[in-house]
Design a protein around this nucleic acid. Structure first.
Lengths: 242, 242
DNA sequence: CGTGCACTTGAAGTACATCAACTAGGGTGG
DNA sequence: CCACCCTAGTTGATGTACTTCAAGTGCACG
């Protein structure tokens, strides 16, 4: 496939992302070596194996941890612009994996070591930390929710959060968006059984809040859904994209 | 109280923390303005209010998020050496608070803006990101656990994790350590009711795995507890302390 | 026209919450 | 010294949200 240079990248221009100066952009371009296309359900990072740093350029992916008993927990969904593998790059032992959910394209960031970014572009490092804090805030929300809300509330929360993240990168359409998660992904993300995911979805549909079908999520009544799920939209501010 | 300078800080010398060069140490000293002692159960950061950046110097604290219904979820426990308030400093809206668990002392980091660290000490910035990734890994574990394990397993996991964190800063004693969490803190951290925390503790004690009493945690059979809780000790590597 | 896979639905079991009654220290005032 | 309360923890009874298992549906693909 044709490699898209950072200068011409359509994703990078979205208002969600910090717009680099010329020298910063040139530097980021040198971080990147190639791009790589992947099938749905393919491994980007395998737990305990080869490390790698990537930017998700197109498609959906998810970060997960698996237990000896075969159970797994989805920690996070990854959308275009998200960085993949920073934890694996900086720490010795990591226990998470990353898989594609849909067909996806990643930019491979092995052109030069990340150290140089800290030395030569402190503003980028600062933005990176800011982006990490946004991710931490999101994780805080998940943690708070897993412990304290019902299955249907958790579902609604996840829907709203993903919708808003898509919206920020121009991938939503007013009241609906693509939503390629299957039942088992929802179950693994929300700590539920597949059967109960189903019941919760039925609840949300019957209550006229949201429906899910054909890989499309429709928010039927956003205001009431927010209220029901205890979700509050947050002003994210700029993120970094490498 | 007497202010301890960074050069004489006993905490900073622990092998857990990266040992700074002289110029770095001098820089970190200028970040700090004063130290402040706090009573147990006092607010360090109030959700949605004044921002501030601190290093916990002595004592225990916890980071929490509260719901409109009065429920709250403890996101993380903070031990000496941990940084407090980075998310609040870098983002506009934050919804978490931090309270002391015991009497505590914090170093107040408002001496000069954090930007200078990125510009003048890129190695510190790099270490900061590494430390944040360690925290993310820990949070990953919590997320995976909340969704997928029983009450007693979650309790055991939390005990082992806190024990090991204490151990790394020299605050454990072989098989036991201080453990100032009350029942309601455990409940709020693990997503349980107070009553069930109690039952789970009884289970762990009856199984000969761990006991809790008088603010002391005793690991009766660490190997079996690790096995039971699905906990694996991780080599953390160096953290940064500001 | 079967064969397989993702989803749906129902019945029964389990792990947890909730509530209420009780117990055990720890001041405080007399 | 005791009578008193106040709070933190303990225990039991009951309700509920979820899991698990099993049978059934609908659609995609050979």
């Amino acid at each position: 496939m044709a490699v898209v240079s950072c200068e011409q990248c359509r994703l990078r221009c979205k208002p969600q992302f910090h717009q680099f100066g010329d020298d910063e952009l040139a530097f980021v371009q040198t971080l990147q070596s190639t791009q790589s296309s992947m099938a749905p359900n393919a491994d980007i990072l395998v737990p305990g194996e080869a490390k790698g740093l990537f930017t998700l350029f197109a498609g959906w992916a998810y970060r997960y941890r698996e237990f000896p008993d075969g159970n797994r927990q989805i920690l996070d969904f990854l959308l275009p612009g998200d960085l993949i593998g920073l934890q694996a790059t900086l720490l010795d032992q990591t226990q998470y994996g990353v898989k594609t959910l849909t067909a996806a394209t990643v930019c491979v960031l092995d052109g030069r070591p990340l150290d140089e970014m800290f030395r030569e572009h402190p503003a980028l490092a600062h933005l990176l930390v800011r982006t990490l804090m946004q991710d931490q805030r999101r994780t805080d929300g998940q943690l708070a929710f897993l412990g304290r809300r019902t299955a249907a509330q958790r579902m609604g929360y996840l829907m709203l959060e993903l919708f808003d993240r898509l919206d920020r990168i121009g991938m939503s359409n007013g009241t609906w968006c693509q939503f390629p998660l299957q039942r088992r992904h929802l179950a693994d993300a929300l700590g539920l059984s597949g059967a109960h995911v189903n019941r919760s979805m039925t609840d949300l549909r019957d209550a006229g809040l949201a429906t899910l079908g054909n890989n499309v999520l429709v928010l039927l009544d956003r205001a009431r859904l927010e209220d029901f799920a205890g979700y509050r939209a947050l002003d994210e501010g700029e993120r970094i994209i490498l």
